[in-house]
Amino acid sequence: MRKLVYYIASTLDGFIAGPDGADPTGPDGFWPIPEDYLQRLIEVYPETLPAPARAALSITDGGTHFDTVLEGRRSYEIGLRAGLSDAYPHLRHLVFSRTLGTSPDPAVEVIADDPLATVRELKQQDGKDIWLLGGAQLAGSLYAEIDSLIVKLSPMTIGAGIPLFSDRASFDPRSWKLTDHTVLKSGAAFLTYARAATAV
C-alpha cells in the first residue's frame, strides 16, 4: 500500500515558514539553500523540485519516491502568486480547498472533500508514495494518516512562525522510528522517520 509522506523543511525550533506564511526560500526569503543541500535534492528527491528549478538545472529524472503531491490552498497560492499554476506538472497534483473553486490549471485537481477520506482512497491505488507538501493546516488535518516523516532540518531558528502541524491536529502522541539520516557539511540534516506501531 502507498504511504503518505510528510516531506518538509523545518527549522530547529519546528517552523516551516515565517509568521506571514510566505515562501521562506523565495527572493525575499530568509532560508538559505546551501550547495550541498541543493545537490542532495537533485540526487535523491528530484521530483520534489518545482518545474522552473528542474528546467534551470536540466533535471529530467522523474524520481523514485513520489508520483503524487498534496497541498493546501495557502501553499498552492504561493506558487500562483509567483505565476505558477502547476509547480509540479511531472506529478499528479491535488490541492485541498473548500474556497478555491475551479482549478486555475487543468492539470491540478482541486479537492473540496474531506482530505482524510481522499488520502485513504489514494493509498489503495497503485503507484509510488504520496508527498504531503504542506502546509501546516493540511498536515494537521492529515496527522492521523501520515506514515512517514522526512524532515529537512535546517541549522537555524526563527523564534516564531508556521509550525510543522497546525492546531487542526488533535493531541495524539505518536512514536517515530528513525530509519535514515544524512547530515550535510552545511549543517542541514535529512531525517527519515517511520511511524512506530504504538505511541509513547
Rank of each mutant, 00 (worst) to 15 (best):
L132W: 05
R2N: 15
K152H: 15
A53L: 15
A194D: 15
T192A: 15
L70F: 02
V108H: 01
S97Q: 11
D113N: 14
R73P: 04
I146G: 10
P50A: 09
I33T: 14
G134Q: 11
V44S: 04
S170K: 10
Y88W: 14
Y88K: 01
S154R: 05
S58Y: 12
L94K: 05
E145V: 02
F171S: 13
P34M: 04
K185Y: 09
Y45A: 11
V44N: 06
P52I: 10
S141M: 10
S10Q: 12
A199G: 13
R120D: 13
L91H: 08
A22I: 00
L153I: 08
Y37L: 04
R73E: 09
I59V: 12
A160W: 00
L184D: 05
A117W: 09
S186H: 02
A112R: 00
Q137G: 05
L80H: 06
P106I: 03
P52M: 10
S10L: 12
I78Q: 02
L70P: 01
P32R: 09
A194Y: 13
E71L: 13
S175Q: 15
R2K: 15
D172F: 04
L91Y: 14
Y193D: 01
D67F: 08
P52V: 08
T99R: 09
P50H: 11
D36I: 14
D114Y: 06
F96K: 00
V110K: 02
Y7P: 02
S154L: 08
Y6G: 15
L70V: 04
G29K: 00
V110R: 03
H181A: 14
P163L: 06
A55F: 11
Y143Q: 05
E145T: 08
A189V: 11
L132E: 03
V200W: 10
K3T: 09
T99S: 07
E77V: 05
G83K: 07
R81K: 15
G161E: 00
